[in-house]
Design a protein around this nucleic acid. Sequence first.
DNA 1: AATGAATGAGAATTCATTCAT
DNA 2: TATGAATGAATTCTCATTCAT
Lengths: 209, 209, 209, 209
Amino acid sequence: MEYSEKQLQIMKKAEKLFAEKGYNGTSVRDIAEKAGINLAMVSYYFGSKEKLLEAVFDYRIGMTKQLLSDILHKTNLSSLEKMNLLIDVYVKKIIEQQPFNKILAREQVVNTTGHTANLILQMKRTYMDTVLSLIREGQKKGEFQKHIDVSLLMTTIIGTANHLVTTKHYYRQLNNYEELSDEAFNKLIEKKLRNHIKFILKASLTYES
Amino acid sequence: MEYSEKQLQIMKKAEKLFAEKGYNGTSVRDIAEKAGINLAMVSYYFGSKEKLLEAVFDYRIGMTKQLLSDILHKTNLSSLEKMNLLIDVYVKKIIEQQPFNKILAREQVVNTTGHTANLILQMKRTYMDTVLSLIREGQKKGEFQKHIDVSLLMTTIIGTANHLVTTKHYYRQLNNYEELSDEAFNKLIEKKLRNHIKFILKASLTYES
Amino acid sequence: MEYSEKQLQIMKKAEKLFAEKGYNGTSVRDIAEKAGINLAMVSYYFGSKEKLLEAVFDYRIGMTKQLLSDILHKTNLSSLEKMNLLIDVYVKKIIEQQPFNKILAREQVVNTTGHTANLILQMKRTYMDTVLSLIREGQKKGEFQKHIDVSLLMTTIIGTANHLVTTKHYYRQLNNYEELSDEAFNKLIEKKLRNHIKFILKASLTYES
Amino acid sequence: MEYSEKQLQIMKKAEKLFAEKGYNGTSVRDIAEKAGINLAMVSYYFGSKEKLLEAVFDYRIGMTKQLLSDILHKTNLSSLEKMNLLIDVYVKKIIEQQPFNKILAREQVVNTTGHTANLILQMKRTYMDTVLSLIREGQKKGEFQKHIDVSLLMTTIIGTANHLVTTKHYYRQLNNYEELSDEAFNKLIEKKLRNHIKFILKASLTYES
DNA sequence: AATGAATGAGAATTCATTCAT
DNA sequence: TATGAATGAATTCTCATTCAT
């Protein structure tokens, strides 16, 4: 699905508002105002508010799939290197696409059916398959231990990243980072998150009971 | 803050609806209907829809604080035992209070100020202090390694539990648990989650670089 | 179905407006203004604009059925007397309920399915059964001729009355009755219509080829 | 008024939609889509939606006037023959132009002033004059009885035809013609209507009190 | 002659809340 | 304590029309 410049412009503003106030907390009026367009243009370009949300999901999840596909096709890397690259890319994406991640974090709770839920499931499957193949590779080479619950391990990685990003204002207060600029704080948590996830992974994958 | 029977009855129905459809997606009419009361009674008992949400938070977070306080005062346990008990209690709570956890997961994203945000911050601080003191204890005794980012470790624990519970319908599909009854599935993920978190904790706290 | 005073008040104003401007040409705002109530009360009392229209149909068609039932149960009358009474009552109803008749004339054209169409069909069946039994009675007694297409005869009676009433402004102009008051004109056409239909009926039912 | 091919194409589609959903129930978008043209072309070709409706009336009523004029000028026919021809032509027109007749039936109820109302009045006058002169002719020759209310007689003819055609779906159900094809059913009611109107006319015009 | 974008007005409906009883 | 009626604001969406190209 391709989107015109105008559509992308609207989608970006909508994404921001959905992230800040939630889908139901955002009115089409809000979006039209922020995007500097007439109220009726949202229906004109997307059909409805819900279709606009779906467009945002389409767009972002499409990007994500592309990222994952790119990594898998880097045939010159070892499985551990691929895993590390995957973490780097994933964390970078999470930090850069914070607004969409907030929407995703909220919508996947209540939206259990429909087009959006389908997209989310597809994305989760793609992640799962990618990680699964990487871990199997590592296990074959003896780099990783045998007893790994990949699904739960992924829940941990995604849950950690999601929770940090969606509740970063609490993390900031609890750790006294309030004097940092937004930019600096984002840089900081990106680095911390990347290292932390890699640490958790290494500890889990190489743990000897 | 004490709540009357009638208030608790309303709060319970509201909690369920907020969890299923989100705060903004739930109307006062919905709540009144489900609770079998007159529409105006919501305002009468709570003042407003938002105050009702706050009451739910008050109530649930109060319960959680009590739980944590109980654990800390069990002076006859070792720090590792306390930590394990904490996990048991936390996971049990997460599973039992899934509706509230869904609300919490959603509201903490958009609600960054106000009474609710304050309650959440307090709760997080309580968790943080509890875990911090347990880990310091364990480090003193040489049971845990020295370099632990407690805040991120907690992010991992909470993030893992939250993500599993709020997106459990996806977890179910991805792992082919669709034939299980709701009850059986809840039992299963409670056990899995408990073990997984303990494993992650042990692997992290005892990791040797 | 019983309607409260308030509902009847709204239905009456709505009926008038629907008759004057058509269902689609009338806004809920119009109705609320004319009825002197708040805009939201229409939804409150009827659920929706369409349900309000259905209520009007329910009410008026219910009245009509009652009228027909009353006539049929007058056992002391001959079939010709019953027929004449039926015409009198029918024409009186048509004249008195001109607004509803305009709505009916318009809606039965486009509304071919749904609750409203069902009501109309029921009413038509009731009329048909009534007239059919009266004519069969008259034929048995030898008062009426044998070859009568009752369905088309009814189409003629109803069509004549409908057409006169719904296009009476044209009838008025074509026959130079413009100086008459509304009341006087209504009186006039009621009498003319009654006699005309009786004449057509007599001529048709007793025609000898 | 002459219309271009393009205009006629649009008018035809518009006529169909107006008949099916009513004028107010049909959007310019609907028409543009059905006609396979750009939305703005409706305004371009007709000025407005209302002018488009007027064009349809212009066109159809112009055709009707032509038909009537043709009959009147057939000097070789007797008045009874002319009357019969008039019925044939009228019924044929009613059946063939059902969509326009539905529009007419609806619009003449609510549209009591303006260009459209004028056109309708003109047409009615033309019909009236035609029938009046035919009946006067017949009365002079002694073929018809003296006391005839021509205006009401015409109301009966037009009303009968209108009612049958605009509510033919009910007629179909009431008389169990549902298994007939549309085409066959139209053929059937055309024949029935023609005979019925002629019968009513003959019975009325020759009735002896 | 035709198009796609745009607009402002208006549509029906739902909302949380209040008030008199 | 409880109710049903009422309100005004806000919701999303559709409408006919216009305009620049």
